[in-house]
Computed example of a mutant assay.
Amino acid sequence: MARLLARGLGLSSASVRMLRQCAELCELNVRALRKESRLARRTASLCFELSNQVAYEAWRDVEDPGSHALSRDALRLARSCHPLLFSY
């Protein structure tokens, strides 16, 4: 998010909002997993979906050379959520 803000994108821009939502959802997912909540599969599913969206959007951002690293990290996050979808 810091790179996007440094490039002049505002807090209300779609890219910054998506990254913030992804971070918040990941935090929620971690809490659900720690509590062994029945909702953990749902939060993992949402985290998987949103991190894939972040990866796609970051890959498309050719103006920022660091965006491909973000895309790679978001895909790694999506892959880590995937096994959780079938574990509960």
Rank of each mutant, 00 (worst) to 15 (best):
F48I: 02
D64W: 08
T43L: 13
A78V: 14
G10Q: 05
G10I: 00
A69C: 06
Y88L: 12
S37A: 08
S71I: 04
L46V: 12
L28E: 12
R79F: 06
S67T: 03
L70D: 02
C47G: 05
R3Y: 13
S15F: 07
C26E: 14
P65F: 05
S71C: 12
N52I: 03
S87Q: 15
L9P: 10
R7H: 13
A40K: 03
S71P: 12
L25C: 02
F48R: 05
V54H: 05
V16E: 03
W59I: 02
N52Q: 15
E24I: 01
Q21H: 14
K35R: 12
K35L: 07
D61E: 03
S51T: 00
A32S: 14
E36N: 15
A44Q: 02
A14Q: 09
P83L: 04
S67W: 00
E49M: 11
A40R: 10
E63Q: 06
G10L: 04
R76D: 10
H68E: 07
E57A: 11
C22H: 10
L70Y: 03
S15P: 13
L5V: 06
Y56N: 12
A69K: 15
V62M: 06
R20G: 09
M1E: 08
A23C: 10
E57Q: 09
F86Q: 15
V62L: 05
R41G: 06
T43S: 11
A23N: 00
L33F: 13
L70N: 00
L11M: 15
R17L: 06
S15K: 12
L75H: 03
L28A: 06
S80A: 10
Q53L: 09
Q53V: 03
H82M: 08
C81H: 03
A23G: 04
A55Q: 06
D61S: 00
R31V: 01
T43A: 08
L85T: 01
Q21G: 11
A40L: 07
G8K: 04
S51D: 01
Q53D: 03
S71H: 09
C47Y: 12
E57M: 02
M18I: 06
E27T: 10
E27G: 07
A69E: 13
E36A: 13
V30A: 07
R34N: 15
V62P: 02
L4S: 03
S15W: 02
S87V: 11
Y56L: 11
L9C: 06
E27W: 04
C81E: 00
A40P: 01
E36K: 15
A74M: 05
E57R: 01
R76K: 10
L9M: 14
A2S: 05
G10F: 00
M1D: 04
Q21R: 01
K35F: 11
E57V: 01
R38A: 08
L5F: 00
R17I: 10
E57S: 09
S37Y: 06
A23F: 04
R72C: 09
A32F: 08
R79K: 11
S80M: 11
L5R: 02
R60N: 08
T43F: 13
R41W: 02
L84P: 00
E57H: 07
A2E: 04
E27N: 12
L85E: 03
L77H: 10
E24L: 00
L46S: 07
